[in-house]
Amino acid sequence: MREVDLTAVRPYADHLGDGLVQMSFTLPVPYSLAARKAALELAGRMGFEEPEVVHYEQLTEGYTYFVMYGRCVQSVDFEALQGEGFDIEYMSEDEIERFAEEHLHRKVVVVGASTGSDTHSVGIDAMLNLKGYHGHHGLEGYRSFETHNLGSQVPNSVLLAKAIEVGADAILVSQTVTQQNLHVHNLTELVEMVEAEGRRGDMILACGGPRVSNELAKELGYDAGFSKGTEPQHLATFIVRELAARVASSG
């Protein structure tokens, strides 16, 4: 039996090192022999050796669909990637509920909105509304959370007033579509307002959106930032852990 060389791994299909990749895609060209040739050539340019079209057909006039195989000759150094802290451990919905029960003994109150001129509630809805995102419930669906989703185009002052009114543990701000650096301005303003109210220590502040990163969020004075691909349980994991840590440290 051969050892796998973890410094140079490539796809495995039938035997070690064969590099076989299955792929399918559509080209906006008429169904023809030339289309087939184009797909083979394209796969070659992608770096695949011995590309093969196993199926192709017309979808509608001018569009052809392909199923292909090709041999990938590239490899990656898996060993170098291990232990670099890529494996962030998020909890599942059930685990979060149990964690909250054990460590917090009460509901976590969360207030969220898409602020400023942003009309898009898609981000905050994905995190907070029951329907959630990618088949994962939003926080509204958790027993351990009490959520207030104020929707879109909410002024920072309204968001903060609501947070104070309901005694929020966390404020969530979504910035989906912004122009220039309006989102930076919006996000900064909220932090300043929370600080002016003397509430910064009582609340977790988190923001999210396609142009938000954890690095940017921290720079602006938030506890965390969430980017594309975030699912509600990722956010929930962060909130319950952070809150539990705060409870523990305050004795």
Binding site: T60, Y63, S121, V122
Partner: peptide, 26 residues
């Protein structure tokens, strides 16, 4: 339109264009 033509070609009888997520609350 392109997608709908492909749907028709493949035998679809009813084409429904999903609305933008943000629209239901406008």
């Amino acid at each position: 339109v392109v997608h709908a033509r492909a749907v028709a070609e493949a035998g679809g009888d009813i084409v429904a264009v999903i609305r933008s997520t943000a629209q239901s609350l406008l």
